[in-house]
Design a protein around this nucleic acid. Structure first.
Lengths: 365, 365
DNA sequence: AATCAACCTCAAAGCGCTTTGGATACAACC
DNA sequence: GGTTGTATCCAAAGCGCTTTGAGGTTGATT
């Protein structure tokens, strides 16, 4: 029985289709040593140009490509970058930004011969995922997504010595680390200021979950700008939650139903904005006239903010571009281990669309 | 100069942090051979339970995890599945479905100890990406996304002998292959029938790009159902394009502006549906009264179709669940190479929301 | 003719695991 | 006592690459 099992396994391996061309066979075909062929293909100078050309041609012809694992084993580098996506069972939400970020980062990896490996981390087991990634030498580094305030992952990764770049920042962490972030605070302060200039005084704020660092900073921007104009933020005008369409809808609907409804909204994302729009229209209000709305636009490829004329006035910053840049940063960190932590702070652009206008005149009571 | 370069490379490797615990060291610590430790950890019966327990405890304690590459090299399997995401430069669109599908598939992989590797394929170079994946033994199999009609990838993958499962199907391919698909044709036929039953006779169809197989089948469902009711599809009521919000908006706006506007729309996705809604509302029409709308809902986690009461009447099928199932299918195919091609056809559910209602009475001319 | 670079090329030793084909010890059986 | 199991364990041979340290060939220089 035991031996039967073993034999089965063995047979499986034997049945495996003839493995593709490998270095040994290729060098044999060429009448060269493996060393020479390897050197020729990896651009070492110890090989004559004539030989190199011959080798390269043969490699192409036989569609030879070195085995990723053998190469990795020999060189000690994985030539792969990890992205850990968190999918909590509580809120089964996949970050909608993820796909575009990945697409951007992927371009950078492809250009540099790196692979991208994705891991799913369920809730608490997150630490284990990073640890495992490191222990199995599965990746040379990771991108940390969606940092929370005081995010524990940063210390963890420093501890276990796995190079990383954070997309975003983590307030409360004092150690230096590499990050790339949008200036959420200034973006939302500016948007708030824009609404104030239009005469709005009661501005509803539909924010993301505020333990997320970006949401925290956005709130600071919002309250700060109000404060500078001598306005105290009204707790009744602030909502925080997972950024779904439904959340935008409910938040706006409830605020508009209150005794002192806002005349404008500051909204965390395009998707939320769609929900806010649904709420305003359900009440027969027109966006840009009766109610002004500013959203944050991540320039997601599948949810563009209109065509030539933006639908929403928005603070804009491409998450795909962020992906490209973050990946580049990480690859540099890996290539130069002693490099000090690098930081990039991107400023969002304010684009004016049809969703904002002067505050309606206050009706006499 | 050359030697300087070499030395640099060498030094880098030397500087590399002390590699984590490996089998050799662990077995030495335990006073056992590598064989025994390996067997103990991999559940072979030739090891006493006492030894196994001792080994497992030590492994945990030292956070030992076998190197993925060494293991892969030794076993001949990569323990990784590839997903190729296409990002054409023409239309810089990332498939919005992708993130949720991946999340579903990732759960399956995680449960089975597999990794997920993503590759970006730019336009034409797609073949090369699959070839490279195979030649470098980077993955044990791939999931094929977004198949087109007569998709050439299926023949290619069969050729190079890389196990795969298609998410969707490819009309025109006669060879058997494994796939998992939603019954798009019946779903759209049913939705069309639903609208016809409500008295709608002019039904606009906002479809995806029709060289995509799913869009092709949806169209067959739509025209088929119309045909059964003795209605010939009006070319002026059919649009096909990349499924963005803007596309939905423009399509609906233009059709509604025509001489014989439709009283209902069949729409390819939730995102498109949002655009259609924007168009109807811009014209002062109310969804569910003046204009009926049915969308296809992939149950994306970040774009749910409302809360308890669906916003849109929809044909519904969870893409995340599809990811889970497709991944399972692929893992089985890999485990049992001679297994005949498996197919799963999921039926979409029709959920009735607030976006549909009886056709408005025709006004007398 | 001898020497010396400069240029090519190679055999062999890892990288960290799995797997094969024994080896060893102990008990049980005839 | 010798044989046969049975339960444990091990040394060593790969897997496919890179890299080290050396060995050959040329052709030019003394």
């Amino acid at each position: 029985m035991i031996h039967g099992l073993r034999k089965l396994r063995f047979n499986l391996k034997a049945l495996w289709p003839a493995m593709s061309m490998n270095l040994k066979e290729l060098s044999h075909k060429l009448g060269l040593s493996q060393t020479t062929v390897s050197r020729a293909l990896n651009g070492y100078p110890e090989v004559s140009e004539a030989t190199r050309a011959r080798v390269q041609r043969a490699a192409e012809q036989h569609d030879y490509r070195p085995s990723a694992r053998a190469k990795g084993l020999a060189t000690g580098r994985a030539l792969a970058i990890g992205h850990v996506i968190q999918t909590s069972t509580r809120h089964e939400m996949v970050n909608p930004i993820f796909a575009d970020f990945i697409a951007g980062a992927g371009e950078t990896y492809a250009r540099n011969g790196y692979e991208m490996v994705l891991s799913i981390a369920e809730d608490a087991a997150e630490d284990q995922v990073y640890r495992a990634l490191r222990a199995r030498r599965a990746v040379d580094g990771v991108i940390v997504h969606a940092p929370r305030m005081n995010d524990a992952r940063i210390a963890l990764l420093n501890d276990i010595g796995l190079p990383f770049v954070v997309h975003g920042r983590a307030s409360g962490i004092t150690l230096p680390y590499s990050w790339l972030d949008v200036n959420n605070r200034s973006a939302f302060a500016r948007a708030t200021g824009f609404l104030l200039d239009l005469g709005h005084r009661r501005i509803g704020f539909v924010n993301g979950l505020e333990f997320m660092d970006f949401a925290h900073r956005r709130r600071l921007g919002y309250t700060g700008a109000l404060g500078e104009s001598g306005i105290t933020a009204d707790p009744g005008l602030m909502r925080s939650g997972e950024m779904t369409e439904e959340f935008g809808y409910i938040s706006a609907r409830d605020m508009l139903a209150g005794p002192h409804p806002p005349s404008a909204f500051l909204v965390a994302s395009m998707i939320c904005g769609v929900g806010v729009r649904r709420a305003t229209q359900a009440l027969g209000l027109r966006m840009g006239r009766d109610v002004s709305v500013i959203i944050h636009d991540d320039v997601l490829s599948y949810l563009q903010n209109g065509g030539a004329v933006p639908i929403f006035t928005a603070t804009r910053s491409s998450v795909r571009e962020a992906g490209r840049m973050a990946a580049e940063m990480l690859l540099q960190n890996i290539a130069t281990p002693d490099r000090p932590a690098a930081n990039i702070l991107l400023e969002a652009e304010l684009v004016v669309g049809g969703s904002t206008g002067p505050a309606p005149q206050q009706e006499a009571p």
